Amino acid sequence: MNNNPFSFLIGGIFSLMIAMGIGRFAYTPILPLMQEALTFTDSVAGYLASSNYAGYFVGAILTGVLPLKKHKTFYLRVSLVASIITTCMMGLTQAYILMLIIRFISGVASAFIFVLASSIVLDKLASAGKTNWSGYFYSGVGFGIFF
């Protein structure tokens, strides 16, 4: 296993790009296009956004109460896969209820990724004396939105 703090940093950046930049924030610019194509109201769009926020809230709480410490990397990987799958699934359905469920699950996965990746990467940077690199880690959100 590679214990190089730079490798952890790069992995963390990509994790945040996937979960936060794409899985969470990509919907902001495409939501009006979804509304037009699927002919749903502003209220429906708001419920979709709220479903994701609720999932994010639940996921953040769960990462604090579940015993994830010994298997953080495993749960991070599972959450990354869930984020990718739920992002892809949004393009495959027109069923509003299914979209609500998918966005909720996506929110849970995003929270898990944000909390677990932060924990793993910041711990590794701290143990290597590279805490000044933490800003680079959080740039993953912006890179994901830009991408």
Rank of each mutant, 00 (worst) to 15 (best):
K130A: 11
G135H: 04
Q35H: 03
G46L: 08
L9Q: 07
N4G: 06
S79G: 05
S51T: 02
L80V: 09
V108C: 10
G11S: 05
S79A: 15
P32W: 03
M34H: 01
G91W: 05
M34W: 04
I84K: 04
S119K: 02
P29T: 01
G91Y: 10
Y75D: 12
V58Q: 09
T73Y: 15
R77E: 15
L92M: 15
K124P: 02
M89R: 04
G144D: 03
L62D: 04
A49H: 06
S118P: 01
I22Y: 14
S43T: 12
S51W: 07
I13D: 06
I61V: 12
P67G: 12
N132D: 13
K72M: 14
D123W: 09
T63E: 09
E36F: 15
I61Q: 08
M17Q: 02
A37R: 13
I101H: 00
F146K: 08
F25K: 07
L100W: 08
I97V: 15
A117Q: 02
L68Q: 09
A26E: 01
K124M: 06
I22H: 07
S134W: 11
T93I: 01
S50H: 04
K124R: 15
M1R: 05
I10L: 15
S79P: 07
G64V: 12
T28M: 12
A37V: 14
S139D: 00
N2G: 08
A126D: 07
W133S: 12
E36S: 14
K70G: 11
I85E: 15
A49Y: 07
L92P: 08
N2T: 08
F146S: 13
L80E: 00
A19D: 06
S118E: 02
N132P: 03
L68S: 07
V58D: 06
R103T: 00
E36L: 15
G64A: 07
N3T: 12
I84A: 09
H71M: 14
D42I: 09
L98F: 10
G11V: 06
K70V: 02
V115M: 13
